[in-house]
Protein backbone atom coordinates (compact mmCIF):
# COMPACT_ATOMS: atom_id res chain seq x y z
CA UNK A 1 0.00 0.00 0.00
CA UNK A 2 1.42 3.35 -1.01
CA UNK A 3 1.43 5.73 1.94
CA UNK A 4 2.46 8.96 0.41
CA UNK A 5 0.57 11.91 1.87
CA UNK A 6 -2.24 11.35 -0.62
CA UNK A 7 -4.20 14.35 0.59
CA UNK A 8 -4.01 17.51 -1.45
CA UNK A 9 -4.76 20.42 0.89
CA UNK A 10 -5.36 22.90 -1.90
CA UNK A 11 -8.29 20.88 -3.16
CA UNK A 12 -10.03 21.07 0.20
CA UNK A 13 -9.72 24.76 0.87
CA UNK A 14 -6.52 24.57 2.90
CA UNK A 15 -3.23 26.31 2.19
CA UNK A 16 -0.81 24.16 0.24
CA UNK A 17 2.52 23.22 1.73
CA UNK A 18 4.18 25.85 -0.41
CA UNK A 19 1.84 28.48 0.95
CA UNK A 20 2.64 27.39 4.50
CA UNK A 21 6.36 27.66 3.72
CA UNK A 22 5.80 31.17 2.46
CA UNK A 23 4.30 32.12 5.82
CA UNK A 24 7.70 31.45 7.44
CA UNK A 25 6.30 29.61 10.45
CA UNK A 26 8.35 29.51 13.67
CA UNK A 27 7.15 27.04 16.28
CA UNK A 28 7.94 28.16 19.81
CA UNK A 29 6.56 25.06 21.49
CA UNK A 30 8.37 21.90 20.44
CA UNK A 31 8.59 18.76 22.57
CA UNK A 32 9.98 16.47 19.89
CA UNK A 33 13.64 16.57 20.75
CA UNK A 34 13.71 13.03 22.13
CA UNK A 35 12.69 11.78 18.71
CA UNK A 36 13.85 14.69 16.65
CA UNK A 37 14.60 13.09 13.32
CA UNK A 38 11.23 11.34 13.15
CA UNK A 39 9.19 14.33 14.26
CA UNK A 40 11.00 16.58 11.79
CA UNK A 41 9.51 14.57 8.95
CA UNK A 42 6.15 16.06 9.93
CA UNK A 43 7.53 19.50 10.69
CA UNK A 44 8.87 19.48 7.15
CA UNK A 45 5.66 18.08 5.74
CA UNK A 46 3.71 20.99 7.19
CA UNK A 47 6.16 23.59 5.93
CA UNK A 48 7.27 24.83 9.34
CA UNK A 49 10.56 26.68 9.13
CA UNK A 50 11.97 26.47 12.65
CA UNK A 51 11.20 24.81 15.97
CA UNK A 52 12.18 25.85 19.48
CA UNK A 53 12.62 23.00 21.91
CA UNK A 54 11.39 23.73 25.42
CA UNK A 55 13.20 20.71 26.83
CA UNK A 56 16.88 21.49 26.42
CA UNK A 57 19.00 19.97 29.20
CA UNK A 58 15.80 18.73 30.72
CA UNK A 59 17.39 16.56 33.36
CA UNK A 60 19.02 18.39 36.25
CA UNK A 61 21.94 17.26 38.32
CA UNK A 62 25.11 15.43 37.41
CA UNK A 63 23.79 11.91 36.96
CA UNK A 64 25.15 9.96 34.00
CA UNK A 65 21.73 10.11 32.37
CA UNK A 66 21.58 13.90 32.73
CA UNK A 67 25.05 14.16 31.20
CA UNK A 68 24.01 12.04 28.25
CA UNK A 69 20.85 14.04 27.61
CA UNK A 70 22.68 17.35 27.93
CA UNK A 71 25.38 16.26 25.51
CA UNK A 72 22.78 15.00 23.07
CA UNK A 73 20.95 18.32 23.23
CA UNK A 74 24.13 20.32 22.68
CA UNK A 75 24.92 18.19 19.66
CA UNK A 76 21.42 18.56 18.23
CA UNK A 77 21.52 22.31 18.65
CA UNK A 78 24.98 22.52 17.14
CA UNK A 79 24.17 20.36 14.12
CA UNK A 80 20.68 21.64 13.36
CA UNK A 81 21.03 25.36 13.59
CA UNK A 82 19.17 25.76 10.33
CA UNK A 83 15.90 24.71 11.96
CA UNK A 84 16.32 24.09 15.71
CA UNK A 85 16.86 26.36 18.69
CA UNK A 86 16.20 25.72 22.33
CA UNK A 87 15.15 26.98 25.73
CA UNK A 88 16.11 25.51 29.09
CA UNK A 89 13.79 24.90 31.99
CA UNK A 90 14.28 26.85 35.16
CA UNK A 91 12.83 26.17 38.59
CA UNK A 92 11.86 29.15 40.76
CA UNK A 93 12.07 26.97 43.84
CA UNK A 94 15.78 26.44 43.08
CA UNK A 95 16.93 29.93 42.29
CA UNK A 96 20.68 29.50 42.59
CA UNK A 97 20.67 26.38 40.47
CA UNK A 98 18.46 28.07 37.91
CA UNK A 99 20.84 31.02 37.65
CA UNK A 100 23.77 28.64 37.33
CA UNK A 101 22.03 26.76 34.53
CA UNK A 102 21.21 30.00 32.75
CA UNK A 103 24.86 30.98 32.82
CA UNK A 104 25.93 27.56 31.63
CA UNK A 105 23.34 27.10 28.89
CA UNK A 106 22.52 30.65 27.77
CA UNK A 107 25.38 32.97 28.71
CA UNK A 108 28.05 30.42 27.84
CA UNK A 109 26.09 27.87 25.87
CA UNK A 110 23.75 27.36 22.93
CA UNK A 111 20.32 27.97 24.50
CA UNK A 112 18.40 31.16 23.79
CA UNK A 113 15.83 31.30 26.56
CA UNK A 114 14.11 29.90 29.61
CA UNK A 115 10.90 28.04 30.18
CA UNK A 116 8.75 27.93 33.29
CA UNK A 117 7.17 24.48 33.44
CA UNK A 118 3.86 23.46 34.95
CA UNK A 119 5.43 22.15 38.14
CA UNK A 120 8.56 22.59 40.17
CA UNK A 121 10.17 21.20 43.25
CA UNK A 122 8.52 23.38 45.89
CA UNK A 123 5.40 24.60 44.09
CA UNK A 124 6.52 28.17 43.46
CA UNK A 125 4.64 29.93 40.69
CA UNK A 126 5.95 32.70 38.49
CA UNK A 127 4.63 35.61 40.51
CA UNK A 128 6.65 34.66 43.61
CA UNK A 129 9.57 36.98 44.52
CA UNK A 130 11.95 34.08 43.92
CA UNK A 131 11.56 34.83 40.25
CA UNK A 132 13.05 38.29 40.36
CA UNK A 133 16.72 37.32 40.07
CA UNK A 134 15.83 34.85 37.32
CA UNK A 135 14.01 37.46 35.27
CA UNK A 136 16.75 40.00 35.90
CA UNK A 137 19.41 37.64 34.55
CA UNK A 138 17.21 36.61 31.63
CA UNK A 139 16.79 40.27 30.77
CA UNK A 140 20.55 40.87 30.92
CA UNK A 141 21.11 37.95 28.58
CA UNK A 142 18.32 38.97 26.21
CA UNK A 143 16.78 35.54 26.72
CA UNK A 144 13.36 34.52 25.52
CA UNK A 145 11.09 33.93 28.52
CA UNK A 146 8.31 31.40 28.12
CA UNK A 147 5.90 30.71 30.98
CA UNK A 148 3.54 27.74 31.00
CA UNK A 149 0.15 28.90 32.28
CA UNK A 150 -3.23 27.34 32.84
CA UNK A 151 -6.49 28.20 34.53
CA UNK A 152 -8.10 25.03 35.84
CA UNK A 153 -11.70 25.04 36.97
CA UNK A 154 -12.54 23.30 40.23
CA UNK A 155 -12.71 23.70 43.97
CA UNK A 156 -15.64 23.95 46.31
CA UNK A 157 -17.44 26.10 45.45
CA UNK A 158 -16.21 25.77 41.89
CA UNK A 159 -14.32 28.74 40.48
CA UNK A 160 -12.61 29.21 37.15
CA UNK A 161 -9.22 28.74 38.84
CA UNK A 162 -10.30 26.60 41.79
CA UNK A 163 -8.65 23.46 40.46
CA UNK A 164 -5.13 24.80 40.07
CA UNK A 165 -2.24 22.53 40.85
CA UNK A 166 0.21 24.12 43.19
CA UNK A 167 3.20 25.55 41.43
CA UNK A 168 1.40 25.94 38.11
CA UNK A 169 1.21 29.57 37.05
CA UNK A 170 -1.86 31.33 35.76
CA UNK A 171 -2.01 34.31 33.40
CA UNK A 172 -2.84 36.30 36.52
CA UNK A 173 0.57 35.31 37.89
CA UNK A 174 2.18 36.41 34.64
CA UNK A 175 0.39 39.74 34.92
CA UNK A 176 1.77 40.21 38.42
CA UNK A 177 5.27 39.41 37.23
CA UNK A 178 4.84 41.72 34.26
CA UNK A 179 3.87 44.52 36.59
CA UNK A 180 7.20 44.16 38.38
CA UNK A 181 9.17 43.92 35.12
CA UNK A 182 7.43 46.23 32.68
CA UNK A 183 10.44 46.38 30.35
CA UNK A 184 10.89 42.63 30.00
CA UNK A 185 9.00 40.64 27.40
CA UNK A 186 7.21 37.65 28.89
CA UNK A 187 5.45 35.02 26.83
CA UNK A 188 2.29 33.68 28.46
CA UNK A 189 2.02 30.06 27.30
CA UNK A 190 -1.11 28.12 26.34
CA UNK A 191 -3.21 31.30 26.52
CA UNK A 192 -3.94 30.21 30.05
CA UNK A 193 -5.90 27.21 28.81
CA UNK A 194 -9.20 28.85 29.64
CA UNK A 195 -8.55 31.56 27.10
CA UNK A 196 -11.37 33.99 27.71
CA UNK A 197 -10.28 34.95 31.24
CA UNK A 198 -6.65 34.14 30.38
CA UNK A 199 -6.39 36.72 27.64
CA UNK A 200 -8.17 39.33 29.70
CA UNK A 201 -5.75 38.77 32.57
CA UNK A 202 -2.73 39.83 30.49
CA UNK A 203 -4.41 42.21 28.07
CA UNK A 204 -3.29 45.41 29.74
CA UNK A 205 0.39 44.45 29.97
CA UNK A 206 2.03 45.35 26.70
CA UNK A 207 5.19 43.48 27.61
CA UNK A 208 3.26 40.20 27.75
CA UNK A 209 2.95 38.18 24.58
CA UNK A 210 0.53 35.31 24.12
CA UNK A 211 1.27 31.78 22.90
CA UNK A 212 -1.77 29.60 22.45
CA UNK A 213 -0.73 26.02 21.80
CA UNK A 214 -1.69 22.95 23.76
CA UNK A 215 -5.43 23.31 24.21
CA UNK A 216 -8.27 22.29 21.97
CA UNK A 217 -8.74 24.41 18.85
CA UNK A 218 -11.76 26.33 20.03
CA UNK A 219 -13.12 28.51 17.27
CA UNK A 220 -12.87 32.22 17.92
CA UNK A 221 -9.97 32.14 20.36
CA UNK A 222 -7.43 33.82 18.09
CA UNK A 223 -10.00 36.37 16.95
CA UNK A 224 -10.58 37.22 20.59
CA UNK A 225 -6.86 37.49 21.32
CA UNK A 226 -6.33 39.82 18.38
CA UNK A 227 -9.33 41.90 19.40
CA UNK A 228 -8.06 42.31 22.95
CA UNK A 229 -4.28 42.37 22.51
CA UNK A 230 -3.65 43.29 18.90
CA UNK A 231 -1.96 41.08 16.35
CA UNK A 232 1.60 42.07 17.30
CA UNK A 233 1.63 40.28 20.67
CA UNK A 234 0.75 36.78 19.50
CA UNK A 235 3.30 34.05 18.84
CA UNK A 236 2.64 30.53 17.63
CA UNK A 237 3.50 27.10 18.95
CA UNK A 238 2.86 23.60 17.65
CA UNK A 239 3.24 21.49 20.80
CA UNK A 240 4.49 18.49 18.83
CA UNK A 241 4.30 15.61 19.26
CA UNK A 242 1.53 15.40 21.87
CA UNK A 243 -0.49 17.93 19.95
CA UNK A 244 -0.52 18.34 16.19
CA UNK A 245 0.08 21.00 13.63
CA UNK A 246 -3.47 20.26 12.50
CA UNK A 247 -4.70 21.39 15.91
CA UNK A 248 -2.50 24.46 16.10
CA UNK A 249 -2.57 25.69 12.50
CA UNK A 250 -6.35 25.51 12.51
CA UNK A 251 -6.56 28.05 15.31
CA UNK A 252 -4.94 30.69 13.12
CA UNK A 253 -6.75 29.77 9.92
CA UNK A 254 -10.01 29.92 11.85
CA UNK A 255 -9.41 33.59 12.62
CA UNK A 256 -10.41 36.49 10.41
CA UNK A 257 -6.90 37.62 9.51
CA UNK A 258 -5.21 38.84 6.38
CA UNK A 259 -2.01 37.32 5.05
CA UNK A 260 0.31 39.78 6.75
CA UNK A 261 -1.41 39.33 10.09
CA UNK A 262 -1.03 35.56 9.79
CA UNK A 263 2.65 36.00 9.03
CA UNK A 264 3.08 38.03 12.17
CA UNK A 265 1.47 35.41 14.36
CA UNK A 266 3.19 32.50 12.68
CA UNK A 267 6.67 33.95 12.86
CA UNK A 268 7.38 37.64 12.49
CA UNK A 269 6.41 38.48 16.06
CA UNK A 270 8.62 35.77 17.50
CA UNK A 271 11.49 36.81 15.27
CA UNK A 272 11.30 40.27 16.77
CA UNK A 273 11.87 38.73 20.19
CA UNK A 274 14.26 35.89 19.45
CA UNK A 275 16.50 37.00 16.62
CA UNK A 276 18.78 39.31 18.63
CA UNK A 277 19.94 36.54 20.96
CA UNK A 278 19.97 34.00 18.15
CA UNK A 279 22.36 36.15 16.17
CA UNK A 280 24.60 36.37 19.21
CA UNK A 281 24.64 32.58 19.23
CA UNK A 282 25.62 32.41 15.60
CA UNK A 283 22.28 31.56 14.07
CA UNK A 284 22.03 32.68 10.46
CA UNK A 285 18.69 34.40 10.87
Amino acid sequence: MNKSFAFNPGKFGLPTREELVELRIWDLHYHGINNHETVMKYVNRMGVERVFSLDIGRLWGDSPEAEIVSERDRKLLRENKDHLAGLIRIDPSRVDESLERMREWIQNGPAIGIKYANRNQEDINCSHPNNDPIIELADQLGAVIYIHTWILVGGEPRRIDGGMKTGESTPMDVAELARRFPDVILICGHQGGDWEPGIRAIRAFENVFLEFSGGDPESGAVDFAVQEMGVNRLVWGGHLPSRSYANELSKVFDADLNHEERKKIFGSNLRQIAVPIMRKKGYDV
Binding site: S4, F7, D216, Y245, A246, L249, D254
Partner: peptide
Protein backbone atom coordinates in the same frame (compact mmCIF):
# COMPACT_ATOMS: atom_id res chain seq x y z
CA UNK B 1 -13.77 23.53 16.48
CA UNK B 2 -12.53 25.01 13.23
CA UNK B 3 -13.18 22.81 10.24
CA UNK B 4 -9.52 23.19 9.33
CA UNK B 5 -8.51 21.12 12.37
CA UNK B 6 -10.04 17.99 10.92
CA UNK B 7 -8.78 18.66 7.41
CA UNK B 8 -5.18 19.38 8.35
CA UNK B 9 -5.03 15.94 9.97
CA UNK B 10 -5.11 14.41 6.50
CA UNK B 11 -2.33 16.69 5.33
CA UNK B 12 -0.18 15.79 8.33
CA UNK B 13 -0.49 12.01 8.04
CA UNK B 14 1.08 9.74 5.47
CA UNK B 15 -1.97 7.86 4.19
CA UNK B 16 -2.75 5.87 1.11
Amino acid sequence: FPLENGLFKFMESALS
